[in-house]
Design a binder for these strands. Structure first.
Length: 489
DNA sequence: ATGTCC
C-alpha cells in the first residue's frame, strides 16, 4: 500500500487498476490479507472502474464490508450485500435530556419500544395495533411503491418523513413501478417466496446481529458551521434522539439469496469464468434479463427496508408518547449503506455499489437540488458504539475522491466467534452500567461489544483527515435495544 | 445479514 496523504493510500493491483484506500496508518494496519484480496478481486472484476476501501473495511461476501465498487456496465449482487438496503435512521425528539435521566423512565420506554418493535430472528410484529398489521395486499403495495403517500397513510407514518429519505422509493430496471409489479407476480409463484405474508408481517422489526435501536442525547459540535448545519438537519443540542440500524429482514434475504443461487447456477451451467474464481462475485451485464431481474429484486427489497425503517420510527415515537405524553418527533434522515445507486461518476452514469458504505454528497451536489439539504449536504449517520457514541457528519468537497462515499460505522476488528471467546461478559456489562447506559438485554451480546469494533475515533479521524466529511454532532447512548442472542447464558 | 444451511 502506497501512502498518498495522512489518511489516504493507493493499493496497486497486478492489472494496474489502483484502489483508493481511506484510513490513517493505524487504520490501514487493521486490514487483513483476505479483506485486501477481496478488494483486489473486486477491482479486477469485469466492468469495474473504481474501488474505494473505507476505514471500517473488513471481510465481506465477495467484496469487503466497507467498500465502494463502481461499474457503468455491470451489476454485482455480492457488493450490494445479503441485507439489501441495510440503513440508518435518526429520529429527533423534542425531549430534553433531563426527561430521561431517571432509570425507571428509561426502563418503561425500553419496554414500550420492545412491545412494538421486536428484535431477533424471524420475529414479526407483536403488540402493535391491528391497523398496523401488514397483510398480503398492503405488503404487495409497499414493496412496489416504497414510502408512497398512500402506504405512509395506511401505516400511520407521517408523510413528510418521505422527504427525509435518501430514497423514499425505488423503481424497477426500466425506471417504472410496473416492472416491479410484474417481477413480484413472478416471484410469488416461486418456492422461495412462498412465505411472502410471513415476511411482510416482519415490517416494523429490527432483526438480529448488529442491528439495533439506541436512545441518544445529541451533542452538537461547538463551532459555527456545525451549529448551522445542525439547524438545517433539524438536530437539537442537549435533546433526546433515537438512532436505528436495520434492513430488509427476511424478505431482503430471500431476494438476495435467490439471486445468488440463480446467478451462480447460470455461471456454472454456461461455464463463465468467475472473477478471481470467487462465486460470491457473480455479476450480470446491464441490459440482460439477469441484470433486470436483479435490479427489480433489489428495488423490491429496498422498498421493504425503507417502509420498515419509517414504521419503526413511527412506533418508537408512539412508545415515547405512551411513557411521556405529548412528546413530538421529526425524522432527521434515513440513509442506506447496502445498496447500488445509479449516479454520475467520472462524468458518466454508473452503478455505485455501496457495501457497508454511506453516500456522502456535499452541499451543491446536483442530486440534492430539490431536497432540504441542497446547500449543506445531507446528514451522514455513522454508528460507533454505545460506549464512545455515534456521529452525524456532513460531506466536504473532498468526498469526490471516494466516489462521494464514507464508511458506515466503526467496522469489526474481532470476528463474532473470536469476540465471544476472548471478551469478558462481566466487564462489558459493568462498563455500560458505569456509564448509566441501559439495555433490553439482561447481558449485552459479547460479539457486539465495543471492543469487537475498531477504534471509532481513529475511524472518524481517517474520514476527516482525508477531507471527506466533517463532524456535526455526537450522539451519546442512554439505552440500547438489541437482540440478546450473542450474550453468555 | 438470515427461521444463524434451501
Amino acid at each position: 500500500m502506497i501512502p498518498t496523504g495522512d489518511a489516504t493510500a493507493i493499493l496497486p493491483t497486478s492489472s494496474t487498476a489502483p484502489i483508493t484506500v481511506i484510513g490513517t496508518a493505524a487504520i490501514r494496519d487493521t486490514f487483513d490479507e483476505v479483506c485486501l484480496q477481496q478488494a483486489i478481486n473486486s477491482r479486477q472484476a469485469p466492468g469495474v472502474t473504481d474501488v474505494v476501501l473505507n476505514p471500517d473495511a473488513h471481510l465481506g461476501y465477495g467484496a469487503p464490508v466497507g467498500c465502494v465498487m463502481v461499474s457503468p456496465t455491470h451489476i454485482y449482487p455480492g457488493p450490494v450485500g445479503v441485507d439489501i438496503k441495510c440503513s440508518m435512521s435518526l429520529l429527533q425528539l423534542d425531549l430534553p435530556a433531563d426527561a430521561i435521566a431517571d432509570r425507571r423512565t428509561r426502563r418503561e420506554i425500553i419496554s414500550a419500544i420492545c412491545q412494538r418493535t421486536p428484535t431477533g430472528a424471524g420475529k414479526g410484529q407483536r403488540s402493535v395495533p391491528k391497523s398496523r398489521n401488514v397483510n398480503r395486499t398492503l405488503g404487495r403495495q409497499l414493496v412496489v411503491q416504497g414510502a408512497s403517500a398512500d402506504v405512509c397513510q395506511q401505516l400511520g407514518i407521517p408523510s413528510e418523513w418521505a422527504d427525509r429519505c435518501e430514497d423514499a422509493f425505488h423503481l424497477g430496471h426500466d425506471d417504472s413501478a410496473e416492472a416491479l409489479d410484474i417481477r413480484l407476480a413472478t416471484l410469488l409463484e416461486q418456492r422461495h417466496m412462498s412465505n411472502f405474508s410471513d415476511k411482510m408481517a416482519q415490517l416494523g422489526s429490527y432483526g438480529g446481529g448488529n442491528h439495533f435501536g439506541e436512545c441518544e442525547v445529541v451533542e452538537v459540535d461547538d463551532n459555527r458551521r456545525a451549529r448551522e448545519v445542525a439547524e438545517t438537519f433539524g438536530l437539537r443540542d442537549g435533546k433526546v434522539a433515537f438512532l436505528s440500524h436495520c434492513g430488509s429482514r427476511g424478505f431482503g434475504h430471500n431476494l438476495a439469496s435467490g439471486q445468488f443461487n440463480a446467478l451462480q447456477s447460470k455461471f456454472s451451467r454456461w461455464d463463465i469464468p468467475l472473477p478471481a474464481g470467487d462465486r460470491q462475485l457473480v455479476y450480470a451485464p446491464l441490459g440482460t434479463d439477469e441484470a433486470n431481474a436483479y435490479l427489480d429484486d433489489m428495488a423490491l427489497g429496498a422498498n421493504f427496508a425503507t417502509v420498515n425503517h419509517l414504521l419503526i420510527n413511527a412506533l418508537v415515537l408512539e412508545a415515547f408518547q405512551e411513557v411521556i405524553p405529548g412528546t413530538t418527533g421529526s425524522l432527521v434522515y434515513f440513509i442506506s449503506h447496502n445498496i447500488a445507486r445509479k449516479e454520475i461518476v467520472n462524468q458518466r452514469p454508473a452503478w455505485v455499489h455501496r457495501k457497508g458504505a454511506t453516500r456522502a454528497f456535499p452541499g451543491g451536489h446536483f442530486e440534492l437540488r430539490d431536497t432540504p439539504f441542497a446547500q449543506t449536504g445531507h446528514p451522514i449517520l455513522l454508528p460507533g458504539n454505545p460506549r464512545d457514541g455515534s456521529a452525524v457528519m456532513v460531506a466536504d468537497a473532498g468526498a469526490e475522491k471516494s466516489c462521494y462515499s464514507v464508511n458506515h460505522g466503526a467496522g469489526r476488528v474481532l470476528g463474532r466467534r473470536h469476540a465471544k471467546r476472548v471478551l469478558d461478559q462481566a466487564k462489558i456489562d459493568s462498563e455500560l452500567d458505569r456509564r448509566d447506559i441501559l439495555s433490553n438485554c439482561r447481558r449485552y451480546p459479547k460479539d457486539e461489544a465495543p471492543a469487537a469494533y475498531k477504534n471509532f475515533e481513529e475511524v472518524l479521524k481517517s474520514v476527516k483527515t482525508a477531507g471527506l466529511a466533517s463532524e456535526v454532532a455526537r450522539l451519546k447512548a442512554r439505552f440500547v435495544i438489541k437482540d440478546a442472542s450473542g450474550a453468555d447464558d
